[in-house]
């Protein structure tokens, strides 16, 4: 592992110069993203520093409850961010929370039971983060598409309801379309792994000096894991969320009708 990555503070400071390149482009092109970019960089530095020290502590303690609590915090934050994509849909935080909890717990359990990872914080927490963040993105896409489709296909949903269809039968086309939207990026990405991108997990292991063939095994595991996570997350989020577009009288209500 003599080639293992070694980022010291000086090289990190030089790397920060890359942010200046981005800032220069933003300023030159009058994109108006300077403020957002600076906030993003500062947040990334603070959040990652805190999490680095926190993980060091949690790994050292190696306590089951503490590991689970950390995973729950990750899921909570992912749900909170997914919620922003579903603005206007009532109680969307809990829809996101349960969906990410389901996708993360089922996928993690599968990996642990298959012996692919061990129930130790140094493996459970990073893998949970990958699962939760991919579920979060998938669910966010589902919500955005669901709001668009319920607006664009409002008349069709009303027609189906008027014909005596259940809420499920009135909206199932939209639900299926949204689940597909949530899963599509993961499916597309999996097709280009290795030929376009060397994904994060694999790159990280290679950086750390691990044999690429061994690193690939882990990456294949990640592909399986993310397909499971995004499909579980999308399915549960869509099936929970679509009902929020209807009231208890099985009438279609718009986001604005809900006062959100």
């Amino acid at each position: 592992m003599h080639n293992a990555v070694n980022v010291n503070n000086v090289s990190l400071a030089f790397a920060a110069g890359l942010v200046l390149v981005a800032l220069f482009i933003g300023w030159r092109q009058k994109l108006g993203v300077d403020r957002d970019m600076i906030i993003g960089v500062v947040r990334a530095i603070i959040q990652l520093t805190i999490v680095g020290f926190l993980l060091k502590y949690i790994f050292a303690v190696n306590n089951v409850l503490l590991t689970l609590a950390m995973i729950l915090v990750i899921i909570f934050n992912a749900a909170y961010n997914a919620m922003k994509r579903g603005k206007g849909i009532p109680n969307i935080f809990w829809s996101s929370f349960w969906s990410i909890l389901i996708s993360t717990s089922v996928t993690l359990s599968g990996l642990v039971l298959a012996g692919a990872i061990k129930f130790v914080p140094s493996q459970m927490i990073p893998i949970s983060g990958m699962i939760a963040s991919n579920s979060m993105v998938a669910i966010g896409l589902c919500y955005r598409n669901m709001r668009t489709l319920f607006r664009d296909q409002r008349q069709q949903v009303l027609e189906r309801l008027a014909l005596g269809a259940s809420v499920h039968d009135s909206a199932i086309g939209i639900v299926r379309e949204c689940i597909k939207t949530g899963m599509q990026p993961t499916i597309d990405a999996s097709k280009t792994y290795g030929i376009v991108s060397l994904p994060g997990m694999m790159s990280g292991l290679i950086f750390a000096g691990v044999d690429p063939v061994y690193a690939i095994k882990y990456q294949i595991m990640v592909v399986f894991m993310l397909l499971s996570a995004t499909s579980l997350g999308s399915v549960s989020a869509c099936y929970i969320a679509y009902r929020r577009f209807f009231n208890d009288q099985q009438q279609l209500v718009t986001a604005s009708d809900n006062g959100k």
Partner: peptide, 16 residues
Amino acid sequence: PMVYRRRVSYCFQQPT
């Protein structure tokens, strides 16, 4: 509501 709407059927002005 579902059973009711099968008995009281509404046809829209500009149906889709």
